[in-house]
Amino acid sequence: MAGAIYRKPITLAVMATVTILVGSVVTMAYPMLRADMHPKLATLKPYTALQLAGRDVYQREGCMNCHTQVVRPLPSEVARYGAYSQAGEFAYEHPFLWGSKRTGPDLAREGGLRPDAWQYDHLANPQKYVPRSNMPSYAFLKGRLLDADQVTSHLAALAVLHPELKPDPAQVKAELAGKDEADAMVAYLQQLGHAVPRRQALAADLTVENPLAHDVAAVVKGQKLFADNCAVCHGDEAKGQEGIAPSLIDDVFLEVKGDMPDAAYFAMISGGSDAKAGLGRPGLKDGGMTAFGGQLSKQDIWSIIAWLRNQKAHEAAEGDDHDAQEHR
């Protein structure tokens, strides 16, 4: 080996720098010039002032130390979270918030997955919904009013790179009036993944019957599945929770009086609120029913329905007696 450069520190430093720059240019700088690094989906919308304020809080609180925001194209991951992340979804991400550690679930498809009320409540007290969750409580976000001037200046900074974000201070002020950090966070969470269509609901064939109706083993299994997956929103006895999710054992289905057949239940559970389109009923304006199609097998879903039907019959039989007890 030519030994001379090991006597010349400046030459050595220059050569080391050049050596370091080769890989940097090829894998870091050069890609910036390529179109495949700057894609943007036509459906991608820029952040509103409220959503951006929520994103800022997400950064400030370091939520990305526990949550990723990128769904990998693996079958199990798509089944768990929804469509895998597309390159064109991230044009407004400064920086990207993909994260590297999933102590909690991925949030790339969180938007619309849960009702607003659930998100507020869960943020303030995660253990209320998932008793063994280790997510910290973020109750302090409530009541911390947003500073419109600050958010305006943040939008203005981003507008250097994205002119369409240029804020109108008066409008920002109006949008943020009376809003606090919890409002901002929920607004941010609810738009995550908005550029990609959510899980497609299966076309509902309402003539299909429940193969497990009245099957005792299925009813028992359904009860457990319900407790694990549904009770957090619909309540332990499926009677619903105010502002979060409706009762599943009353005579109202998707806000319209009159129950629907088991197949309609199946469609809602499998496809979530997106399935409403195929059922012809309005339901809640903001939706919020999670699609369980990827997580629960068909058997599981029919078992839950069998238990729900059993529960409803049971409830009807007990009737007034039960009510009286509750009001004591």
Binding site: M32, F90, P95, F96, H154, A157, L158
Partner: peptide, 13 residues
């Protein structure tokens, strides 16, 4: 407060 100069994929890379 600041925003990374690079967006999305480039920011990650």
């Amino acid at each position: 407060k600041s925003y990374h100069l690079f967006a999305g994929l480039n920011s990650a890379n």
